[in-house]
Simulated assay, not measured.
Amino acid sequence: MISKRNADIVLACGVAVIIVATAIFLLAPVVVTVFMAFDARSYLGSFPPPDLSTQWFGRLVSNAYLWSGFRTSVLLAFAATAIAAAIGAPAALAISRMSAQWRDIVTTVFLSPLVIPGVIVGFALLMFFSSFNLLPPFPRLVAGHLIITIPYTIRMTLIGLSGISASLREAALSLGAKERQAFFTITLPLAKNGIAAGAIFAFAFSMDDVAISLFLSDFNTYTLPVALLGLMRSSFDLTIAAAAVALMGLTIVLLFVLDRVIGLERAIGQGMYRV
Rank of each mutant, 00 (worst) to 15 (best):
A227R: 02
F215C: 07
I195K: 07
T187C: 11
R180K: 13
A227Q: 07
F184E: 13
I200N: 06
A204D: 04
Y222K: 01
L161M: 09
I159Y: 13
L190R: 05
L224V: 01
P225R: 08
G176I: 06
G194D: 04
F184K: 11
I164M: 11
S213H: 10
A199F: 08
A177H: 11
S206G: 01
K192E: 07
M207A: 03
I200C: 07
F201S: 01
K178G: 15
I200H: 02
T185L: 12
L224P: 00
R169V: 14
K192L: 12
F201K: 00
F183G: 11
A196V: 12
F215W: 13
T187P: 14
L158M: 08
G198L: 09
R169S: 15
L161G: 10
A197V: 06
A227C: 05
S165H: 12
A166D: 15
N193V: 07
S167G: 13
L224M: 04
G160N: 08
F203Y: 01
E170C: 00
F203M: 01
L161F: 03
G194A: 06
I164H: 10
K192A: 14
A227T: 04
K192Q: 09
Y222S: 03
L168S: 13
P225W: 07
N193W: 10
I195L: 13
P189Y: 00
A196N: 13
D208G: 03
T223F: 03
K178I: 02
I195E: 03
P189C: 01
A171R: 02
G198M: 11
F201C: 01
Q181P: 09
P189G: 05
L161I: 06
L168M: 13
K178T: 15
A177W: 05
N220Q: 15
L224S: 02
A171H: 05
G230E: 08
R180D: 12
F184I: 15
S162M: 10
D218Q: 01
D209L: 00
E170I: 04
A202S: 10
S206D: 01
D218E: 05
L188P: 15
F183E: 10
D218W: 04
A202Y: 07
S206T: 04
G163C: 09
T187K: 06
A202V: 01
A199I: 04
T221A: 05
N220L: 14
R169Y: 11
F205A: 05
L188K: 11
L228I: 14
F215P: 05
L188S: 12
Q181I: 07
L188I: 09
S165I: 03
G176C: 05
A171L: 06
L228D: 08
L161E: 07
F183P: 14
L190F: 10
T223N: 01
S206R: 01
D218L: 06
